[in-house]
Design a protein around this nucleic acid. Structure first.
Lengths: 193, 193
DNA sequence: GTCTATAACTCGATAGAC
DNA sequence: GTCTATCGAGTTATAGAC
């Protein structure tokens, strides 16, 4: 899981996996008939842990559903900062590297994205009272994913957090335009965090 | 250029390049000492042709600068449609695959992004009269790139144009919020095209 | 400058002993 | 189930003839 995230699937050799896992090829291939099966298992694992390991801790820290959503984006920002803007979203990486060639991989990336958007969409539903009635929650959740993935890509390409922060700032600005007039606006910068 | 775009850098073997180019290894390595030098040349080539080959034809078709920008996005949509949502942005692909490992590659991806945003930013400057005075053109241009790249990623992961179209629709909605009240809004769907 | 042949190495995967 | 040894194909790159 870690190596695929850090280096990508193709660039990670089975030999390195065996070395860092302190396992032998016989053992690995007994459980995973091919390298690709290992990737599928990794993607299944991401599906399993996304909500309990990634979202739950964030959602517990905030009451307001919009704070929860932007707190989630902050998690990805933390990862960029910690890795000097080298590590991106593990699903997005795999999707761009392999979605065209391995249908099963593509499907699992889609399911991970679905779960991500479903969780974000749920927050937006809860914030529905503060949103203008014509706002389509599903499309907005999809837009959150789009902006996050695009922001991560630029952060990695520039090896700088700046374009990611700019993307989130624009997203917050947009969300504020979608709020009813009497709603408390989403704060720029870390004032809300 | 084509093979790196279709398959990625790592997944494209020198042997395949030689075969499809009908060249022999001796010739290739005479001009490009290593495979990576070929990639650098490809990225330089993208820098060269981006404006004359990609942007100029679009910008000629439209008078209104906002039409020009969204016409450019439509070009990427065309590519997704033509390839059944398998081919993405060549620069974004390379950036996510190699930005962490090859500093020179990363720098060239950044320069390609810079040029893209500079061209989009110029359009936005020209549309400045219709934009609210507090709109920061540079940040908005960066947001266009973010949304486009994120939209392409989702389109490829779902092998469907729908999430891309949804992303562009949200972006248009946002831009309309940034327009002065007397400005003609950007049209959703193909009404403007 | 371009050719053929191949070196030197890594890749994913397997066979067979234990 | 796990081990060692290794297969065969594919990789990037080079040497040397022309």
């Amino acid at each position: 899981m870690r190596l695929f995230h850090e280096q990508g699937y193709g660039a990670t050799g089975v030999a390195q996996i065996l070395k860092e896992a302190e396992a032998k090829s016989g053992s690995l291939y007994y459980y995973f008939p091919a390298k690709e099966d290992l990737l599928l298992a990794v993607l299944e694992q991401y599906k399993k842990i996304m909500k309990p390991a990634l979202m739950a801790p964030v959602f517990e820290r905030y009451e307001d559903p919009l704070d929860q959503v932007f707190g989630l984006l902050e998690k990805y920002r933390d990862m960029l900062i910690k890795t000097n803007c080298t590590l991106g979203c593990p699903i997005g990486n795999i999707a761009l590297e392999l979605a065209d060639r391995h249908e099963e991989v593509r499907r699992l990336c889609g399911e991970n994205f679905d779960n991500w958007k479903s969780a974000v969409g749920q927050c937006l539903e809860e914030a529905g009272d503060h949103l203008r009635p014509d706002v389509k929650v599903g499309e907005l959740a999809s837009f959150f994913l789009t902006v996050m993935e695009g922001g991560i890509m630029q952060a990695r390409a520039y090896r700088s957090i700046e374009p990611f922060d700019a993307a989130i700032a624009s997203l917050k600005d947009y969300v504020n335009h979608l709020l009813k007039n009497n709603a408390r606006p989403v704060q720029q910068s870390s004032a809300r965090d």
